[in-house]
Amino acid sequence: MPASSTATAVPTAPRTVGPRPPLGRTRARRRETAADIAMMAPPLILVAGLIIVPIGIAVYLSFTDWNGFTSPPHTIGFRNYTRLIHDPAVKHAAFLTLLITAIGTIACNVLGLGVALLLNRNTRINAILRVLVFYPYVVGAVILGFLWSSILGTNGAVDAALGAHHSLPFLSDPKWAIATVVCVIVWSSFGVNVVLYLAGLQTVPDNVLEAAKIDGASPWQTFWRVKLPMLAPTVTVNVVLVVIGLLRVYELILALTAGGPAGETQSFVYNILTSSFDNTQLGYGAAQSVVLMVFIVVVTIVITAARRRSEQAVAA
């Protein structure tokens, strides 16, 4: 879903409808409407059936004790919600996910922009380097997780190279494991940010940069005063994408640490799926899903609103 999220290209408002058309044209219009609806129906059916209805069902299941196979679910009121507020596992998962999101968002964007500036000039080497930073995107989180776990795990490549007495607890000590998870996540996803920032940098007009140079601006000043303000929309896109991506982190953790040690690296989504399928508490899992959905929607609205406000401030 990258790239598009903050586009403002919602269809234009209905045009003013002209004077009432004569009778003959009504029939034509009706045919138009019919064709219209036939065209729009398939995706509407899919989205309604597999996104909108499921959201409603998630809300319903979150008020039940459904275990997934004994039917039907029993309604238990807000019990799942009161439970998750006090559940240390949920609290830890929420904390960890927010931590990963906060650090990851900053790191991915700083690295993404930094490397984009580094590789901005169109040279052969830079073209190769761009390919190099982006490849994790096509490999996928599960496989990257396994790869890094065989590199950083106990008896992994780095451990073996350091020797038994200097081994580092990358995945066995909770604090190290959390740091490792964050680093691997950033490693595997900042390439997308590099590519997006490179695209953004290309929209900065050359004559503006020339003008800055003539005015005697240092590269540092050019970056802060000229490039960064012009990149503001790109920054928003990148921030929203990384935040949404990291709030749902799961696959990489599953393959890298399987939630360990001591459950310390279980993210929010990890916990949802564990509650649901390992503990057969799908109702409880649904309640956690609802909380996450609401949170993501709120965060997205806040970020886009903040962007709009800062744009208005710039305009004013």
């Binding site: 409407t33 609806i37 036939a38 129906a41």
Partner: peptide, 26 residues
């Protein structure tokens, strides 16, 4: 779903029928 989708055009009478066939065929 067809009731929701079809709702805006319901007042246009005959159209509804054709809409549904088109949709069903898709």
């Amino acid at each position: 779903t067809s009731t929701t989708v079809g709702a805006p055009s319901a007042r246009q009478g005959g159209v509804l029928h054709r809409t549904r066939t088109a949709k069903v065929s898709v």
